[in-house]
């Protein structure tokens, strides 16, 4: 029972650590695919998770200094996602996730005129395979390695009155991406506290669409979290997340000066477990320190709430 709770705890934790916020000039951040289920599912276990995320970007930074650029009033998105994870074998599981931008909007003032650029549509489709090289019961520990791909199945040609909106506001990233990650968790069964760590690396393929030739910079994330079981059903996770994104490139392999960043986030999470393997979670991404190349619009905060349910498809449990 305790082991299951711990697993659920880390599963929910993972939902947040895989959310990448792109620190470009125009975007409010773009959730990365995958449910972040860093732990593998048990054999023939199906996990379904649905979540909603709101992200807001308002402030321009020049390196690590907030500037007074006032062109973009605010940039935000509302994003809903559905994630499925299935345990193929005891050590091997597969995950798929697809999200939908209910609203991806930027309000700005240009030439003393207010402009509103808004899009909605499907995001990228993510597939991940997770393998568990080892896990122990005492102490509770698990190492998970994962590899995945993100396919730009979503909308990448959204227009307003015949005018194509910028790529940073398109629902899909438009780029095929590959990622690899490693996750390690450890907790003693008789203690309330535990810890885990997570690392992710992602590379993107070049987008070639008409006159647009664009490649997102490489992405690296490292996270370290402390977990605390406040009550039997209520858990708190304090997660610190460091993100590095390299410079994007355009045609002729030209590096774009005002892209790429280093950001340190604090990522608190609350998790409540119900009966019958239902769970509710809420979390936030709050940047503590930001350093951007050149001048960029940066993420102010994001919040996420979600519901998840696990099913055992084994006959003995059904």
């Amino acid at each position: 029972m305790i082991l299951r709770r711990i697993i659920v705890l880390f599963y929910i934790l993972a939902l947040s650590v895989n959310n990448i916020a792109y620190g470009q000039c125009c975007t409010a951040g773009n959730p990365i695919g995958g449910d972040g289920s860093n732990i593998g599912a048990d054999k023939k276990e199906l996990r379904i998770s649905a979540s909603y995320k709101y992200s807001l970007s308002k402030n321009y930074f020049y390196h690590d200094i907030k500037t007074d650029l006032q062109y973009v009033d605010k940039s935000y998105f509302d994003y809903g996602s559905l994630s499925l994870t299935y345990g193929i074998l005891s050590k091997l599981s597969a995950n798929a996730e697809l999200g939908y931008f209910i609203d991806k909007t930027q309000k700005l003032t240009i030439n003393n005129e207010s402009e509103l650029i808004r899009a909605h549509g499907l995001g990228d489709l993510a597939f991940n395979i997770k393998y568990i090289p080892f896990r122990t019961v005492k102490p509770i520990s698990q190492l998970v390695i994962s590899a995945g791909i993100k396919i730009p199945v979503g909308a990448f040609n959204e227009q307003i009155n015949g005018v194509t909106i910028p790529i940073s506001l398109q629902p899909s990233s438009g780029s095929l991406k590959y990622n690899a990650s490693a996750f390690y968790m450890r907790k003693r069964p008789d203690r309330r506290f535990g810890w885990n760590t997570f690392a992710l690396f992602e590379i993107s393929q070049t987008i070639k669409k008409g006159y647009l030739i664009y490649r997102y910079g490489n992405y690296f994330q490292f996270a370290f979290a402390g977990t605390c079981a406040i009550t039997k059903k209520f858990d708190f996770i304090a997660n610190a997340k460091f993100e590095f994104r390299g410079r994007d490139k355009r045609e002729n392999n030209l590096k774009i000066e005002s892209t790429g960043s280093y950001v340190l986030y604090i990522n608190p999470q609350l998790i409540y477990d119900f009966k019958y393997k239902w769970g509710l979670f809420a979390m936030a991404d709050i940047p503590l320190y930001k350093y951007v190349n050149g001048c960029q619009l940066t993420n102010t905060f994001s919040v996420q709430v979600g519901l998840r349910k696990s099913f055992s498809l084994c006959k003995s449990n059904s």
Partner: peptide
């Protein structure tokens, strides 16, 4: 006539 505008970099509004 109908018009469709796009830019490889930058933003536009009609």
């Amino acid at each position: 006539l109908s018009f469709q505008w796009s830019a490889n970099h930058g933003s536009m509004t009609g």
